[in-house]
């Protein structure tokens, strides 16, 4: 031992080689997600007189690669809320776990009564998203929450990675905001006042038509999708629907489509 106390307890360079200071450097700034990785495309939602219809396809893309073709992007929360996720799939799975633990906690605190409805969940999720964006660590999602509000009236609202929220009788995220929303709005000429004139069948049909338009025009979409109808009686969720009555008749007239390459 020498008489340089500042050297005591440190490895000697002639024995261990020069000390690698980079291990000692705890000051590198913490970094966060700057872009999403595996993503889902549009989510569509429409209110009708007794509830809400919501749909999203089963594709998860990795950039332009169609990476996973069996990803369910509609998640249910008991007793009658459905949440549709667009954007990063791993962040969706994180939020899903968060909601599951919330459900367990709620049930533990009171097994009867006091359920969280769609409006409560939307408020909660928007706070989570806003908190994360304020920490510069966003959850890269656009989501739609479908269900009922405090008065058991249809509820449909959106929340995104910035914590922005809004509600409307028809909603669509991503590409759907451009392609589906104008079509869906035809159902609601007087916005909220038109909801009472829309039946479940009308709403489902409109959503299916829009899913088809999106499959035709959105390159990151799939012809397999999930659709859910939420009413006071509960959730009717179908997870492996195929698009029906597609029309590709125009294709054989056009060079470059299908087998006709030149």
């Amino acid at each position: 031992m020498n008489h340089y106390p500042q050297a005591w307890g440190r490895p000697r360079d002639d024995v261990y080689g020069p000390y690698d200071n980079s291990y000692f450097q705890a000051s590198a700034p913490q970094t966060h997600t700057q872009s999403p990785a595996v993503t889902g495309t549009s989510v569509l939602g429409v209110k009708f007189k007794d509830g809400v219809v919501i749909a999203a396809d089963n594709l998860a893309s990795y950039g332009s690669l169609a990476r996973f073709t069996d990803v369910k992007r509609l998640r249910t929360f008991p007793p009658n809320t459905v949440i549709g996720f667009g954007g990063d799939v791993s962040d969706m799975q994180y939020l899903d776990r968060l909601l599951q633990s919330l459900d367990i906690r709620e049930n533990y605190l009171s097994s009867y009564g006091h359920v969280l409805n769609a409006k409560n969940l939307h408020t909660y999720l928007s706070k989570v998203l806003y908190k994360r964006r304020s920490d510069f660590n966003p959850l890269w999602n656009m989501l739609l929450v479908a269900g009922l509000d405090d008065d058991d009236k249809p509820f449909l609202a959106s929340a995104d990675l910035l914590g922005t929220t809004f509600s409307s009788p028809t909603l669509a995220t991503g590409f759907g905001a451009h392609l589906a929303q104008p079509l869906l709005r035809k159902l609601m000429p007087h916005d909220e006042d038109s909801v009472k004139d829309v039946t479940k069948e009308m709403a489902v049909e409109a959503i299916k038509a829009c899913m088809k338009v999106l499959f035709y025009r959105d390159a990151r979409s799939l012809d397999k999708y999930s659709i859910a109808v939420v009413t006071k009686d509960g959730v009717e969720l179908k997870e492996d629907q195929k698009l029906e009555d597609q029309s590709w008749a125009f294709a054989d007239q056009i060079r470059g489509y299908g087998t006709q390459v030149n």
């Binding site: 440190r10 020069p18 000390y19 590198a28 700034p29």
Partner: peptide, 19 residues
């Protein structure tokens, strides 16, 4: 520290940070 003694690395030159 005297240079003729066994050396110790005290250089605190910061490692390049990610940011």
């Amino acid at each position: 520290l005297p240079s003729d003694q066994p050396g110790y690395s005290f250089s605190n030159a910061s490692a390049p940070s990610e940011s």
